[in-house]
Write a protein that binds this DNA or RNA. Sequence first.
DNA 1: CTTCATATTTGTAATCATTTTAAATATGTA
DNA 2: TACATATTTAAAATGATTACAAATATGAAG
Lengths: 150, 150
Amino acid sequence: MITNMKSLKAILEEKGIKPTYQRLKILEYMSRNTVNHPTVEMIYEKLLKDIPTISMTTVYNTLNAFLEKGLVDAITITGTEMRYDFNTDSHHHFLCKRCGRIMDIEVTCPFSEGKKLQYGHRVEEVHGYFKGICKDCLKDVRNSAEESSL
Amino acid sequence: MITNMKSLKAILEEKGIKPTYQRLKILEYMSRNTVNHPTVEMIYEKLLKDIPTISMTTVYNTLNAFLEKGLVDAITITGTEMRYDFNTDSHHHFLCKRCGRIMDIEVTCPFSEGKKLQYGHRVEEVHGYFKGICKDCLKDVRNSAEESSL
DNA sequence: CTTCATATTTGTAATCATTTTAAATATGTA
DNA sequence: TACATATTTAAAATGATTACAAATATGAAG
Ligand SMILES: [Mn+2]
Ligand SMILES: [Mn+2]
Ligand SMILES: [Zn+2]
Ligand SMILES: [Zn+2]
């Protein structure tokens, strides 16, 4: 895990972002929640416990700064709100229509190789995702089906 | 082109949607603008010329109905607004960061084959897209570079 | 052709995520 | 200590979308 080797402070300084308390806390949260793909709301609510004065605007501003410097990726799968990803390595996602969770999917195929010119366009980002019902929700659905047939 | 074979009216009736004037006009617009991937705004502004009384709400309602019945697909690439696609065959997209256009990309790879169980999840939709600078914008950028070096 | 029930359309208000703005606070330096 | 600058904050503004309720259209029954 990169976060252990390089301190959060060093990560920010390397990108030319002043390592303020709130920025460090936001980056720390992101680095510890790679499976979540959290919303601004989720980050804000959690940090509120440590920093009672933090504002939503700071979370928005900070994530936009991180985004510009390539410290995080933005995921626009749901259509309602932005989800953020600390893992900027090329990978795909799965959105569960039932529980709303977004999970990582490793895909190895020509599509995800990316960064090549397509149709004469200059490709800078490659995104791929699936939508459906996740493993856990499938189990839930099966269980409630059993119950109702008792 | 499917729209020539089967009338717009027949398409709606087949899906159990009453073919009202505004619905037919919206479907007609969608069928004639498959390269656009239009926003609600774009559809509304265009239809306003034929139907001066049409409301934004009707466009939203109608597209949501079409979406439920699988007559169109929704594209959530930009993060700001929904884009709609009359072409519901599995294909990918390219979003130009400069001009904002979304264009179709044919991709043939294991990823786009889709509809298979991944990680135990039930996959219902497969989405893939690229972001970058489109062919035309690359040309523009090159041209303005020339100009400024005169 | 009326009358009534139902579905659709419309305009307005409400909602929700995000951005803008300006004031308050913190930081670093002279 | 004083001041310039950057950051944070709260509040207001924006923009896309949905919710709501009134107006209108449609279609069957009499
Ligand atoms: Mn991820
Ligand atoms: Mn398309
Ligand atoms: Zn789930
Ligand atoms: Zn372009």
